[in-house]
């Protein structure tokens, strides 16, 4: 009888471990705050791409046409586990509260993420948060929350992010190389 309970316990632990491992690599469900923000926004952009969708999209980025951007993007997204992007544009300044920004940050924040940038302007609901997920010394995720007066952007990228590749894309996609260098320094620390 005792051995049965040991087996049941081991099985439960295994299932819990698998679920937790899956949960770490999968995209989160949308935060309830997003709904209220979308209701107030004049323009909302929502992009959610899981691993399968990214792999599917990569298949249609062939380098046959000689499109350099396509080739670079394909290489970059091939190993990603998910991309979650939200952008809200408002017609009035500060159409959201500091609590909503903090709520969003906390919703996506977990112990795996290391804060890289946390910047707030006193008195107004503006600020920037950049988190990096570093596993085994390698960058496995990037979270950016940028709250401007009339715009709120949220970017979550899961999976191995090659900063050199992002750096190489800098010229084409406008990713600032300084920001990448800063991130690289953080990772090497």
């Amino acid at each position: 009888m005792k051995s049965i309970w040991v087996w049941v316990g081991a099985l439960a632990l295994g299932i819990a471990g698998a679920v937790s491992a899956y949960g770490q690599d999968s995209l989160p469900a949308p935060s309830p705050i997003e709904k209220t923000l979308a209701a107030r926004a004049t323009h909302t952009t929502e992009v959610t791409l899981d691993k399968n969708m990214l792999a599917f999209a990569a298949k249609f980025m062939d380098d046959k046409d000689g499109d350099k951007d396509d080739k670079q993007v394909k290489e970059m997204i091939q190993n990603l586990k998910g991309v979650y992007v939200r952008e809200y544009e408002f017609d009035k300044d500060h159409s959201y509260t500091s609590d909503e920004v903090d709520g969003l940050r906390k919703y996506f924040e977990s112990s795996d993420w290391s804060p890289m940038v946390h910047e707030r302007t006193k008195g107004i609901a503006e600020g920037t948060d950049v988190y990096l997920k570093i596993v085994g010394g390698q960058l496995q995720g990037l979270f950016v929350l940028d709250a401007e007066a009339r715009q709120l952007s949220l970017v979550l990228i899961l999976g191995p992010i090659d900063l050199d590749k992002i750096s190489a894309l800098g010229g084409n996609f406008g990713i600032p190389k300084d920001a990448v260098k800063k991130a690289q320094k953080e990772v090497r620390k």
Binding site: M53, F60, V85, T128, V144, D146, I175, P176, D178
Partner: peptide
């Protein structure tokens, strides 16, 4: 569907780059 997914990836990257640019400007 593949083209739509590709467009979504490009849009996500554009927003990412735009956001990173803004963060960079703000930090600078």
């Amino acid at each position: 569907k593949g083209e739509a997914a590709r467009e979504q990836v490009m849009l996500a990257l554009k927003i990412t780059n735009k956001t990173l640019n803004r963060v960079n400007e703000r930090l600078t």
